[in-house]
Design a protein around this nucleic acid. Structure first.
Lengths: 338, 338
DNA sequence: TAATTATATGTGAACTCTCACAGTTATTCA
DNA sequence: TGAATAACTGTGAGAGTTCACATATAATTA
């Protein structure tokens, strides 16, 4: 009994195409790279030869020579923003880049960067959980010349980054609760090592202080539904005195709502909630969530555009691209009972 | 005024390492590939040289020679399963592969495969919306020898695939509604060109027939929240006679619930709902969703494991890996009013 | 028309690694 | 101890492309 051996048919090379078209291999190279100095006649002749031989340039050989892979790699330190992976992939492709993912822990960062370098990744999108370096120079040294863009705020540092203005967003959210009449406001924050979460937390604190209010209890959670559930349960055990909660994202709000409901508390009647993100579920939850809207697709798209512009022009001045979030008021907030 | 020119310092090669260690370049190659026939002494000597020179093998040159990129690429035809991208990325890395994404439309499929081939992608994970080929041979011809695994059912065909048994899952769901006492059951299906959605639809039909019931109105939607909302609105306009709805996934159920609520109908009191997936939100929605659970992380992991085993052993017999979903009964279903 | 320039095409070399094979030394066994 | 075998190490060649340069032809200008 035989089994099929897939005969490894040798693929045609530039030389084969050159012979077929009656030109030199260099001319073929010029054609496949859309370079100048090729007459229309020979160009079409080469193109025809490419078609008849079903020639595809060998990327490995090109890579060896050019040291450019046309690849953008996103380095994910946590399973947070995966929402925008699809959109990033599409944006990258639109701009002529391949898109690859490394989902890593902090210990793997160095190895990942080394690998990226040896594969000639052209640009990096970094989505950190916690800060990954002290300053731009240090991170630049780590990536060894590969341009990178960070997603998410990194307050006080000078990385090239795209982010939403969390301070502003959190102010909007907290001030809304206060304007509606709340005086006892608790918090379920995201992990405070994360800059976005930290900025929201600080801005919550600041907004309360500026309004002459003392902050309620704050519990730190992990951005997940379950985490939100646990944090709210904990909060209710500690201090049931609040009439509103400021929550680090919609997922945690959904979990927190479960915990409230379990104890017979209703949103917004007994407790108001504001959160962040405006995930698709937010507008259809019961109650519909009042939330600070952030468009992750847009953020992902901007990250790709920024990194591509850095690749094309290494001398582009480093800057931060910051989007302003909007507060979307829905059903999860109302004035407190009197 | 000068500006910093990043001096392209030439990276060390196997030759440099060989000189440093006092051996031949071939020995260096043996060491970096963990091959046999290298004495412990020379191995450590080479390793030391690698360390002092900070040598990293040039993947492009290796690729040119070996024609293996150690890359698995996932080809996404729609933004559905992105839930498991993170898990797939991690699984791939655990097994020593890089992970890249192509998010494409059907027209781009051929170009994507050509690109994959010229980049020496080792394996493909295909997540189709609609069927992409008639049979295994055809698809094998398209991918030109690159092994692939399809995610999702492809009933009647013989692709290597990982999927959940939708027929079984849908039977569980429909039978549950019937067992609880429903006789008028409508449907909001996923896009019927999608095999998973189609299987659920047919199984819904079959289960009703086997129970001697006539199917209610069925509306096709697109797996999104908004789509579910529109479909349910449409359904309510057409035929308000049903007491339960069979819904193609949790997202659409959440949208459908909004539409019901808008018309003053309550779930499950007025209308029962079953759906599919058990997304994290499902257990925390109001009402908690009765749903057919599918573990996408597991599915992604299995897809990676399957493709890696195909890469390692091309003669592995083609088969389908099928998981059985479970019905999770929560709050969105109850007996109909009498 | 000769000199100058622009355009088109070709040749040699290099990019860095691995494969195939050859040669050398160490080990085993009768 | 000598032959056979195993383990180790080295050399030549080539993988398929692009870069730098050289040459040939055509277009432009004085």
């Amino acid at each position: 009994m035989y089994h099929l051996v897939t005969m490894k048919t040798k693929r045609p090379t530039v030389y084969d195409v050159a012979r077929e078209a009656g030109v030199s291999y260099q001319t073929v190279s010029r054609v496949i790279n859309n370079k100048a100095h090729v007459s229309e006649v020979t160009r079409t002749r080469v193109l025809d030869a490419i078609k008849t031989l079903d020639f595809r340039p060998n990327r490995a050989a090109q890579l060896l020579q050019t040291e450019r892979s046309n690849t953008i790699e996103v380095v994910l330190f946590y399973f947070g923003f995966n929402l925008f992976l699809y959109e990033m992939a599409r944006s990258a492709q639109r701009l002529g880049y391949h898109f690859s993912i490394s989902a890593i822990t902090e210990q793997e960062f160095n190895r990942t960067l080394e690998s990226a370098r040896s594969r000639f990744v052209d640009g990096l999108i970094i989505v950190p959980m916690a800060p990954i370096a002290e300053n731009y120079e240090e991170l630049k040294r780590l990536t060894d010349g590969i341009p990178f863009v960070q997603v998410g705020a990194n307050l006080g540092t000078d990385f090239p980054s795209v982010s939403y203005d969390q301070t502003h967003g959190a102010h909007l959210a907290a001030q809304h609760l206060i304007n509606v009449g709340h005086r006892h406001i608790a918090e379920v924050s995201g992990p405070l090592q994360n800059h976005d979460a930290y900025d929201r937390h600080i801005s919550w604190l600041d907004t309360l202080r500026d309004n002459g209010l003392r902050p309620g209890t704050s519990v730190e959670a992990d951005f997940t539904i379950e985490g939100g559930y646990r944090a709210m349960s904990h909060l209710l055990d500690e201090d049931a005195d609040f009439t509103a909660v400021f929550i680090g994202n919609d997922s945690m709000a959904i979990g927190a709502h479960s915990a409230l409901r379990e104890r017979g508390l209703r949103v917004p009647d007994d407790v108001s909630m504001v959160s962040f993100d405006d995930i698709p579920e937010a507008a259809h939850f019961v109650p519909k969530l009042t939330t600070v809207r952030q468009d992750f697709n847009l953020l992902g798209q901007m990250a790709i555009e920024y990194i591509v512009s850095m690749i094309d022009n290494p001398d582009i001045p480093v800057h931060q691209r910051i989007l302003q979030p909007k507060l979307v008021i829905r059903e999860s907030t109302c004035p407190p009972r009197t």
